[in-house]
Nucleic acid binder design. Structure first.
Lengths: 104, 104
DNA sequence: GAATCGCATAAGTGTATGCTTATCTGTTAT
DNA sequence: ATAACAGATAAGCATACACTTATGCGATTC
């Protein structure tokens, strides 16, 4: 189940940090490591998990591999969230902000 | 970190199923177990995890405990998702549906 | 063409996690 | 009161997971 891959991928704080960093702009794996105190294999493994969850996509560029956010994964979370829209009216004010942001 | 609790809670398919069931209407733990092939202690433990993630809240009713969805947890996921709104324009069509649903 | 670089993969290890069985607490019913 | 019931908690266990070190593999650089 793809939904499972996504939530499992995001359950790790290091992976969320990596994802967040990539959301600020795509870069290669070495650049991602800067200031993150994480070994090269660990980074590679995390990126693999994020990739198979469709949260990140890669593109070979010579001997570098460029990574960037894959919106597909985010869209699936949004879909999951939408299933529970019945519970939103109670917090409609907080949500209005989200809606405006998204609808820009 | 609360955000961590939420994603960790949702990383388990059984807990997502429990949450989904509760989203259809609050009920007590025994009722939740019906048709779910899960032991009583396992259900109790899952509910505890969902509870500490603010995805679910409980209310004692005599010797039963009524459980229901807690919108707070959902709101936090929405907030997390909103951070990546920069990636939404690429899928704005799919998102429009979500927006309409939420803004009802 | 040999060394280096960017990254992936393999294998091993400690810890976290989800389950089980057993037991305990608190509430209702007899 | 005591038995039955709803649910929580404890302890143990098997598996999953995130990390480590070591090595492999292409691509570049010298």
């Amino acid at each position: 189940m793809i939904e499972n891959d996504i939530f499992k991928a995001l359950a790790d704080p290091t992976r969320r940090a990596i994802f967040e960093k990539l959301a600020g702009g795509g870069m290669n794996a070495s650049a991602l490591r800067e200031g993150m105190e994480i070994s090269q294999p660990a980074m590679s493994q995390h990126l693999q998990v994020l990739r198979s969850a469709n949260l990140v996509r890669e593109e070979r560029q010579g001997r570098f591999v460029h990574y960037e956010v894959n919106p597909d994964g985010l869209a699936l979370i949004a879909q999951w969230l939408a299933k529970y829209r019945a519970y939103w009216p109670q917090r409609i004010e907080a949500l209005k902000v989200l809606l405006r942001d998204m609808d820009q």
